[in-house]
Simulated assay, not measured.
Amino acid sequence: MMAISAKGKRRISVNERVYLWRMFEHYDQSWFDGVQVSVAAVDQALFVRYGLHQPDDSRTAVISRGRGAPDVRTACPRFEGEDRVLTPQGVRDLIDWGLAVAL
């Protein structure tokens, strides 16, 4: 199993599992255009990608249960606040949601 690089990523623990996450802006070469967050469990058991500032009626996230598993795009709630800022609590909520959906 190949390790996930921690360079440029923040660490967050949810339910005693460590995740790495980063925010970045990308266009035309990813699931979402614009600002997005990518989360990966250090043990590679879960990957989640979410685009910020999506319209309420078409908001989605992409989930994978592990390296090599298929990506699944599914409807999701908003994880950034009314101020359009994603906080560490929003990242925790995204991870909790991803774990519930991926089961």
Rank of each mutant, 00 (worst) to 15 (best):
Q29C: 07
A41Q: 09
T74K: 13
D43R: 09
C76N: 04
A61W: 05
M23I: 14
R92N: 03
V62Y: 02
M1T: 14
W21I: 00
V35K: 13
V91G: 04
V91S: 06
R49N: 15
F32K: 04
W31P: 00
P55T: 04
Y50I: 08
P55K: 11
P70V: 11
Q89F: 01
A61V: 14
K7C: 04
Q44Y: 09
G90E: 11
V62R: 05
A61C: 12
D56C: 06
G66A: 05
S5T: 15
S5A: 14
Q44N: 12
S58W: 00
I63A: 07
T74M: 12
P70M: 09
V91R: 00
V85L: 13
A61M: 14
D33T: 05
V91D: 01
D57N: 14
R22N: 10
R78L: 12
V18R: 09
D33F: 03
M23C: 14
S64Q: 08
G8D: 03
L86I: 14
S58D: 07
S38L: 07
E25W: 02
V35S: 06
Q36S: 15
R10N: 12
V39G: 02
P55E: 06
G68N: 06
Q29G: 13
D56Q: 10
A6K: 12
A61H: 04
A61K: 03
W31K: 00
S5D: 14
D43Q: 10
R17S: 13
L52W: 08
V72P: 00
F47Y: 15
Q36P: 02
F47R: 05
K7V: 13
S58A: 13
D93F: 01
D83Q: 11
S5W: 02
G68Y: 09
S64E: 03
Y50S: 07
D93Y: 01
L103S: 09
E80P: 07
G66K: 02
I4Y: 01
L46C: 11
L20M: 05
N15H: 13
V72S: 09
A61Y: 01
Q54C: 09
R17G: 02
L94D: 02
A75Y: 03
Q36D: 01
F79W: 07
D93P: 04
A40K: 02
R65E: 05
V14L: 10
D33M: 04
R17L: 15
A3E: 13
G51L: 09
Y19N: 02
D56N: 09
V14T: 06
R92V: 15
V42W: 03
G66R: 03
L94Q: 08
V35D: 04
M23Q: 15
F32I: 05
I12K: 02
M23H: 00
A40V: 12
L99D: 14
A102I: 08
